[in-house]
Computed example of a mutant assay.
Amino acid sequence: MNRVKGILWAALSSSTFGLAPLFTLLLIGVGYSSFEVLTYRWGVASLCLGAYGLMAGCNFRLGRHELGTVFLLSIFRAATSLSLVIAYQNIASGMASTIHFMYPLVVALVMMCFFRERGSVWTFAAIALSIVGAVLLSQGNAGFTRGDTTLGIVSSVVSVVAYGGYIVGVRKSRAVEIDSTVLTCYVMAFGALFFIIGGCFTGGIRLETDPRTWLCILGIALPATALSNMALVQAIKSIGPTLTSIFGAMEPVTAVVIGVCVFAEPFTVQGAGGILLIVAAVTMVVLRSRRP
């Protein structure tokens, strides 16, 4: 029963995170800047997680060194979100989400290069598969663009590197000893602060009063951010990080379905093949990394 619950938590986490492109593009469509979208997303989500943590009895006290570590990690996490929003603005959201899903490969490479973890033929094969998949994906969406395609792809790659750095940082720093809810809450709160500062230099942050727009804000802050992160923690506790990572494949699938159905993004045979190759490559790395 615990395993079934864990699988359901993992599926809930990845599928709700896949809703992020939908609400992001809806907010951008009503005139929001990238910084405004992310200010509301991380600000509301951090408040919700803070309230949840207090009700759960979490200790939010951090030492000076722990706080410094969390601050540095929040820079990586904020860079991930900002680069993804820029990607959504320029290329198909499903394509951006699928490229972002390659972050386990970056984690594997960083661990091999900087922490002397042993590489394997499987890891390099997975990297090759993911590159082929990314090429097919870009070709399959070549006829669709919202702006600068090159900027969109580069931004997606930046999100991969930044998120991979965040995960490695969590594993290899003092953050590993911090409660997951507390860590996520602080990271989001720092991120919201960064985005507020960025917004002040790029036109300011509006105080939203429109109820319909607030539905989009709550959509991206609650299910696509707060709920997704809390479900992720529950899934890891129940079934471990390996199986949870595999179920993360629902994230780009959800984004692709929403992109096709809501935003009329293309879905070609080449694009489908690219998605399958990337998902297969990531699954291969995740499974092999847990074997002795």
Rank of each mutant, 00 (worst) to 15 (best):
V106F: 15
G94N: 01
F76G: 02
V135A: 10
E117Y: 10
A125Y: 04
L105P: 05
S46F: 04
L109H: 08
G140Q: 04
V121K: 14
V135T: 05
R146F: 00
V85Y: 08
G50K: 13
L109M: 14
I91V: 15
H65V: 09
L72S: 14
V44Y: 04
T123G: 04
N90A: 10
L67Y: 10
C58F: 08
A128D: 03
F144R: 04
S97G: 04
C113E: 02
Y88S: 04
M112R: 05
S46M: 13
S93E: 05
S74L: 06
A78W: 11
N90H: 10
G57R: 12
M55Q: 08
G143E: 07
N90M: 02
I75M: 11
A108D: 02
V110D: 00
S74P: 13
E117Q: 14
H65S: 14
A79C: 15
A45E: 03
G94T: 07
L62I: 10
L73D: 05
L82E: 10
M95C: 03
T145M: 08
R77L: 10
A125H: 00
L67R: 14
V70C: 13
A126E: 07
L72P: 05
I86T: 04
T123C: 07
L73V: 02
N90T: 11
M112L: 00
R116D: 06
L105M: 07
A51E: 06
R116H: 07
F60M: 05
L49N: 09
P104N: 06
R64D: 02
S97M: 15
F71C: 14
F76L: 02
Y88M: 02
A125T: 08
E66G: 13
M102N: 07
A96Y: 02
V121N: 05
L62D: 12
G63L: 12
A134V: 09
R146N: 12
T145I: 09
L105R: 10
I75H: 09
Y103R: 06
I99W: 01
A108Q: 04
L105F: 11
G143R: 12
G68F: 12
A96D: 10
L49C: 13
A134W: 00
F101P: 06
F124W: 15
L47H: 14
G63I: 12
S120N: 09
S81K: 11
M95G: 02
L129M: 15
S81D: 00
S74Y: 06
S138H: 06
V110K: 01
S46A: 15
N141W: 06
L84T: 06
G119Q: 13
A87R: 02
F101R: 04
R64G: 02
L82H: 14
A142S: 11
L54C: 07
G50R: 14
L136W: 15
Y103G: 00
F101L: 12
M111R: 07
G53P: 01
H100P: 03
V110G: 05
F101V: 05
F124S: 11
R118N: 00
C113W: 15
S46Q: 12
V135K: 08
R116A: 04
V132T: 13
L129N: 03
P104Y: 14
T123H: 11
V132F: 12
M111Q: 13
V44H: 14
G119R: 13
F60E: 09
N59M: 02
E66I: 01
L82V: 12
A108S: 14
A92Y: 00
V121T: 11
A126P: 05
S93R: 03
R146V: 08
V121C: 04
